[in-house]
């Protein structure tokens, strides 16, 4: 009854790497891709569980374009064994509901259902830095039909089929006991992700990643992609908050620095300007029938 530890990861642009292009706009092409930070904490949580279950099978899964293989290889370089990628053009534009559904379908296809004989635990990041919704872990748990604990800082196993999770709540935390199988989403406040090892990187370089399309896992098109998603992004407006460049205090010790700060504050002049970068356009309202729902 070996345990299977499954980590879900997403590849995102490194937020701090987003450099300004020469035209003053964000140059996304230069932003490096990384495994979403929270997901990295999920990966580490899995490697910590391995200490208590040395014979566990470690697998990492993702959904996205082929370039996400890089994230999967990074996970293997950290210590994971197998990697699966759900990649299909038809998944493009999926909202969180459709994403949760697709990932749950892939996991069920791999044999991880609520009635599995073998215990498993699904680890995920609390949320992604490019979406920030925190939905997918809950949705995967619901779709598979297993319990969950989200916003978890640390997860420990007692060597049996239960885990104890420390869940962060407003003003404190909860300790919860969960039976496996279950889904745990990790906050980036637990044990920081380890660095890759060279031996892991060598293993990752030679790894065969299993890639599924939606047909492979028996996922229909009706509930995925833009058309299958129950929600849509109707409009995006740029927000520009402009703070003028900082005025730094000058001086060679704390007395002089604080004097300088107080003088700068008294001078004032720095104020926040905020505006919507794009003007709202009036759209002609066509003469379509109203639909109430």
């Amino acid at each position: 009854m070996a345990l299977t530890i499954i980590s879900l990861v997403k590849q995102v642009p490194l937020p701090s790497e987003m450099r300004m292009g020469e035209d003053g706009l964000m140059d996304r092409t230069k932003a490096k891709s990384i495994i979403n930070i929270d997901c990295q904490f999920g990966l580490e949580a899995g490697l910590q569980l391995l200490k208590q279950h040395p014979d566990a099978r470690l697998i990492v899964c993702s959904m996205g374009p082929g370039s996400f293989e890089a994230a999967l290889r990074s996970a293997v370089a950290m210590g994971y064994d197998e990697a699966y990628l759900l990649s299909d053009r038809k998944l493009g534009g999926s909202d969180t509901y459709a994403t949760g559904l697709a990932i749950a379908t892939m996991l069920k296809h791999l044999g991880f259902t609520k009635d599995s004989k073998e215990p498993f635990i699904i680890l995920a990041g609390r949320q992604t830095s490019d979406g920030d919704t925190a939905h997918v872990p809950s949705q995967v748990a619901e779709k598979i039909g297993i319990p969950q604990a989200t916003f978890v800082e640390s997860v420990k196993s007692d060597g049996t089929n239960n885990v104890v999770a420390k869940r962060i709540i407003e003003g404190g935390y909860q300790l919860m006991n969960l039976p496996m199988p279950c889904v745990i989403s990790l906050t980036p406040t637990g044990i920081p992700p380890r660095k890759q090892s060279l031996s892991g990187a060598i293993k990752a370089r030679n790894l065969q990643i299993t890639t599924f399309g939606i047909d492979d896992i028996g996922l229909g098109t009706e509930k995925i992609g833009i058309s299958g998603s129950p929600t849509i992004v109707a409009k995006v407006v740029n927000m520009v908050s402009e703070r003028p460049p900082i005025t730094l205090a000058e001086g060679h010790n704390e007395v002089a620095l604080v004097d300088s700060l107080i003088a700068n504050l008294a001078k004032g002049g720095n104020v926040l300007e905020k505006k919507e970068a794009v003007e709202k356009k009036e759209v002609d309202r066509p003469d379509f029938p109203n639909k109430d729902f």
Partner: peptide, 9 residues
């Protein structure tokens, strides 16, 4: 940096 409007159907 952006404000998105999201609709559910």
């Amino acid at each position: 940096s952006k404000l998105a409007t999201i609709l559910g159907f």
